[in-house]
Design a protein around this nucleic acid. Structure first.
Length: 566
RNA sequence: CGGGGCGUAGCGCAGUUUGGUUUAGCGCGCAGCGUUUGGGACGCUGAGGUCGGUGGUUCAAAUCCACUCGCCCCGACCA
């Protein structure tokens, strides 16, 4: 490709809307163009990267036994009502109405459709195991798109679904996919960390996410520096710090003027926050929930939501709190009636807590569980944090941010039961198919690749996903053979099956070199009067500082090696 | 949805506070000509704008007022 013909211009200045590194570089390199919030066009260079990632993904999916198909974006809303996921997705679902007033959904994902397909085509255990996948555009009306391609409303996703006869077979499919995913990231030149993840209200037991570590990532990962434990903070477990305990003392009411927050209350009583009980009020599917947790620990809302089997969970408003007869800043489970109490098991570690008095500016001393109140549900609703103990080896956990570039999980029979996807087993008994689902956001993977591979000059594409392998950069001067040599080299390299971006512009060296760096093409070949004097060309790798001179033949061999190596 | 910021040429910005000095300006980019060519060269000439939109106030609006649309960031949210 000749740069003079290439659609998409590089920009010297960063468009004002970009904040994240990958977003800035994608715009500056002319790889994407924004149409609306979370809606992007891919320009030719960006699209080439997408295609390369897709072909790696396809290859791995096929090798793992997947069969590619393509399902519709347009899906009947009824299908979503049948599984109840119209509610689960809520406003995130793009819904439209056709000319006959039928309601259709722009697919945010394809479990419903694939399960419907399976229900029509799988009849016997002989049809299993089965893996089907597609690369399809998904639509999600995200509350907020962000970070360029990191979170968008229209995006390409590879989604594979596995169908198995039993849990053991599902484990096999799951392991195959897990390995395929590891291969994909490695082949794309990315370092991804596999972490345990929350599988949500629908999911079965196992779920893992693949994270590319980046400051701009939306997810927080809790991991153990010593053993292999790593989990999304949504899912992470930890050994909770111990709280002081002693013999239970009689409960006592104390006036606490001006003390409302845990910090203020702890200070007032001159105790550690771990000696207090925190009350957090939520509304889950319309009902008020009183969550009690030790003062030094935060509530993990995902865990709480799962514990309650709720589809919707939010903080209660001040008005709702007041209406329930509770006092903000002094709410207490002691003597509370008519409100569901969920307690974190941290409140059983420790004694004689300070808790709210259910009266303005009043707290209770020496509250003990279960002597003074009783929880309707006791469980683990604590948010783990760095410094707490690893659940496997007790080493202090660490936290880091990451971009979720893949998510795999075991669905079990959640969809097959509802949509009637059954098979007949060896004994002639009809059973629901056991399913798994495995997704990769292609555009997000591209963005993550940039987040992980760049410097202050621009992108540094890993060879396998680079839009072009070689940036051919002639520094023209009249009366020399630069133009002629470059043209010949362009033809030869292309004939050798290499992908060349040929900078045939009449630009100064600085402009060309800077664009080559910005675009991040892995190999740069410079032809100039200087190199021709020595009957050679200059080869420089984007990743390295040093360039080296070599003959045309040597260059061709070396570059072929580099491309093959990836 | 709550909080914050922004909208003037393809991109980056000034001008808005205090209406008139501007036929709306600067840099980059773009077009033409010439000189240049190893890390974002230079000169000359030129094209490019419903100042996000609508309505209002005024002799006069990019500038003041109202409404509205859009974009970004933080949060909420997000299988």
């Amino acid at each position: 490709m000749r740069v003079t013909r290439l659609f998409g211009k590089t920009l010297r200045e960063v468009p004002a809307e970009a904040d994240t590194i990958s977003h800035k570089l994608l715009l500056r390199a002319g790889m994407v163009d924004q149409l609306a919030a979370g809606v992007y066009s891919y320009l030719p260079l960006g699209w080439r990267v997408i295609n390369k990632i897709e072909s790696i993904v396809r290859d791995e999916m096929n090798q793992a036994g997947g069969q590619e198909l393509c399902m519709p974006v347009l899906q009947p809303l009824e299908m979503w009502q049948q599984t109840g996921r119209d509610q689960a997705f809520g406003e995130g679902l793009f819904v439209l109405t056709d000319r006959r007033d039928r309601r259709l959904v722009l697919g945010p994902t394809h479990e419903e459709v694939i399960t419907y397909l399976a229900s029509r085509n799988v009849q016997s255990y002989r049809d299993l195991p089965l893996m089907l996948y597609q690369l399809q555009t998904k639509f999600r009306d995200e509350p907020r798109s962000r970070g360029g391609l990191i979170r968008v409303r229209e995006f390409i996703m590879k989604d594979l679904y596995s169908f198995d006869a039993d849990d053991a077979a599902l484990d096999v499919s799951y392991q195959k996919m897990l390995r395929a995913y590891e291969n994909i990231y490695a082949r794309c030149g990315l370092t991804a960390m596999m972490v345990q993840a929350d599988s949500g209200a629908i999911g079965g037991k196992d779920s893992h996410e693949f994270m590319v570590l980046a400051e701009s990532g939306e997810d927080e990962i809790i991991y153990c520096p010593s053993c292999k434990y790593a989990a999304n903070v949504e899912k992470a477990e930890s050994v909770k710090p111990k709280a002081e305990s002693g013999a239970p003392l009689p409960i006592e009411e104390v006036a606490t003027p001006g003390a409302a927050t845990i910090e203020e209350v702890a200070k007032f009583f001159k105790v550690a926050p771990s000696q207090t009980l925190k009350a957090v009020l939520y509304v889950a599917d319309g009902g008020l929930i009183f969550a009690v947790i030790r003062g030094d620990i935060e509530v993990n809302e995902i865990k709480l939501k799962n514990l309650l089997h709720a589809t919707e969970l939010r903080l209660a408003t001040d008005a709702e709190v007041k209406e329930a007869g509770l006092v903000k800043g002094a709410a207490s489970a002691v003597g509370l009636k008519g409100v569901k109490i969920i307690a974190d098991d941290s409140i059983t570690s420790g004694t004689n807590f300070i808790a709210g008095g259910n009266k303005p500016e009043m707290h209770l001393k020496n509250v003990n569980y279960p002597r003074d109140f009783k929880a309707d549900i006791m469980g683990n609703i604590a948010k783990s944090k760095a410094g707490e103990g690893c659940p496997q080896c007790s080493t202090a956990l660490a936290a880091i941010r990451g971009i979720e570039v893949g998510h795999i999980f075991k669905l079990g029979t959640a969809f097959s039961k509802v949509l009637g996807a059954n098979y007949i087993d060896e004994q002639g008994v009809s059973k629901p198919i056991i399913m798994g689902c495995y997704g990769i956001g292609i555009g997000r993977l591209l963005a993550a690749a940039i987040e992980q591979n760049h410097d202050d000059k621009g992108i540094i594409w890993p060879m396998p996903i680079a839009p072009y392998q070689i940036y051919l950069c002639p520094l023209y001067r009249e009366g020399t053979k630069v133009a002629e040599t470059a043209e010949k080299l362009y033809a030869d390299l292309t004939a050798a099956g290499l992908e060349v971006l040929f900078d045939d512009r009449q630009e100064s060296p600085g402009v060309k070199f800077n664009d080559a760096d910005l675009l991040g093409i892995p190999v740069r070949i410079t032809v100039s009067p200087r190199t021709l004097e020595k009957n050679s060309v200059e080869v420089k790798l984007r990743r390295e500082k040093q360039a080296s001179l070599m003959s045309l033949e040597e260059a061709l061999i070396k570059i072929k090696e580099l491309v093959a190596k990836g």
